[in-house]
Every structure is written in C-alpha cells, then in structure tokens.
C-alpha cells in the first residue's frame, strides 16, 4: 500500500522516526529454542500424534487433510497440553526460591491427575507418560535441578508429557508464556513431521501449511498461557473423540511405523 503524498500542508514529521520498539524477547530465548526443537533427544520422533492412524483410517492423504487434522489437534489436545505445560511451569517457578520443595511436587502431581482424567484413551496415556519420562530424563541431564528429581520420584510411570515439559522449561529459566508456545509448536510439529515421512509430502508445502496456521497457534498459546495460574480443575479439557478411537485401533496394529 502506498501513502498518499498529495497533501502539501501536513505538519512536519517528528524529528525521531516513529518506529515501534521491537517486542521483548522472552527470557532464556536460547533455552526455548532448544526445548522446542524436534532434534531434542526426548523421543518425540517415534510418535506421530495420531497422524499414522488418521492416514489409514480417515484417508488422510494430502495437505488439505493434514491442515484439517492439525487445526483440530491444536484446538483440542494441543490447547490442553499447552495449558498444563504453562501451569506446571508456573507451579515450579513459584516454588523455585525455596528449591522446589514438596509443595511443588504435590502441585505437579495434582496437575498429572487432572491430565490423566483428560486423557480417556489408554494408548494416549501410555504414549504421554513415555514421552514425559524421556523428556524428564533429558531435562535432568541438560538442566539438572532437584525439582526434576522430585518429579521423577513422584511419578513412577513417568509424568504426563506436558507436566514434564512445564517443569523442565521452568528450571531452564522459561516463563509459562514461552512454554505454552513450545507445547503448541510441538502439538503440530510431531504430526507434520510424521506426515512428511509417511506420505512423502513435499516438506516445503508442509511448512507452508504450518506457517498458515501461525495465527491459530498464536491464539491457542495465548489462551493457554492466560490459564497458567488457574486452579487445576479449571484448566481446559478439550477432547478429540476421533483421535481417541483411532489411536486405540492403531495400538492394536502389528505393523506400524510410529508408537502412537
């Protein structure tokens, strides 16, 4: 768009250019990039976030199907994961000055129970705990902290992945807002990466889909971050019935490329 220059009597421009200052970079931006990167050795590459099941059962074959899948996934389980990650991060951060403490472990355990109640599919619960255990193991080596040891001790089968993500993010110095973005990013990157491998979709086109989803991802992450300090019972509980059903079926297959 061009600016009209026909008005000759406009007042003189201010002496300093009226340029908005750049938005502040989140704290520990480098840690956020590490945590949100699919190359973090935390086992995410073995999962498709339900995409492998949708390819076989829902005839998802192309970019249109992928985009519809991602929109539904991020609005439901993606939003829940982001809100719980942000809440776990907030809980650990508020406990950090007194080096975690059992109050933090109890709060994380409460969040874990709430997430369990929001995950009706046993196959998805197993996958979430496996991913949580792997992420916690990774976090313990990369950002060692007593809170992570306590979380590992409190959840024998491994914490649900969003609880682990929030706790690891907190000890890495991230705020709830940043971890909500990391969780939302993860909720679309896992199936999008799997789609490239399973369907041989053009990676540039897949990334164009992801870029198109940017506004939706921002909206979900913003909403999730705003819930970081809500009571655990009031955190969102969006469900995706087809993901539940197809993931259960997928878990019975003898031959599959992804664990979930």
């Amino acid at each position: 768009m061009t600016t009209s220059t026909t008005a000759t009597t406009t007042p003189a421009a201010p002496t300093t250019p009226d340029r908005p200052s750049p938005p502040p970079v989140p704290d520990s931006f480098a840690a956020l990039l590490l945590l949100a990167d699919g190359r973090l050795p935390a086992g995410a590459h073995a999962h498709s976030g339900g995409l492998e099941a949708a390819v076989a059962l829902e005839d998802l074959q192309d970019l249109t199907g992928l985009e519809a899948f991602l929109r539904g996934r991020v609005a439901t389980v993606g939003h829940v994961a982001a809100a719980f990650s942000a809440a776990a991060c907030a809980s650990v951060r508020s406990g950090l000055p007194v080096t975690g403490g059992s109050g933090t472990a109890a709060e994380l355990s409460r969040l874990d129970d709430e997430l369990e109640a929001r995950t009706p599919s046993p196959a998805l619960r197993t996958a979430s705990r496996r991913l949580g255990r792997q992420l916690l193991r990774c976090g313990l080596r990369v950002w060692p902290h007593s809170t992570l040891d306590e979380l590992a001790a409190a959840t024998r089968r491994g914490p649900h992945q969003p609880v682990a993500l929030g706790a690891v993010a907190a000890v890495a110095g991230l705020e709830p807002r940043a971890v909500a973005w990391a969780a939302v990013h993860d909720s679309v990157m896992v199936p999008a990466t799997a789609a490239v491998r399973l369907l041989g979709l053009d990676p540039y086109s897949v990334y164009a889909v992801l870029a198109r989803l940017g506004d939706r991802l921002d909206a979900v992450a913003t909403a999730a971050a705003a819930q970081a300090h809500a009571a655990p019972a009031d955190l969102p509980a969006w469900g995706a019935p087809l993901l539940d059903v197809s993931t259960e079926l997928h878990a019975t297959w003898e031959v599959r490329l992804f664990a979930s």
Binding site: G72, A75, L242
Partner: peptide, 11 residues
C-alpha cells in the same frame, strides 16, 4: 470450534 470437522475430531 476450529478444526471440528477434521480427521482429529469428528471426521
């Protein structure tokens, strides 16, 4: 509800 008709929610 974004994405509700897609292959993750109701298909």
């Amino acid at each position: 509800a974004p994405g509700w008709q897609g292959p993750a929610v109701t298909g």
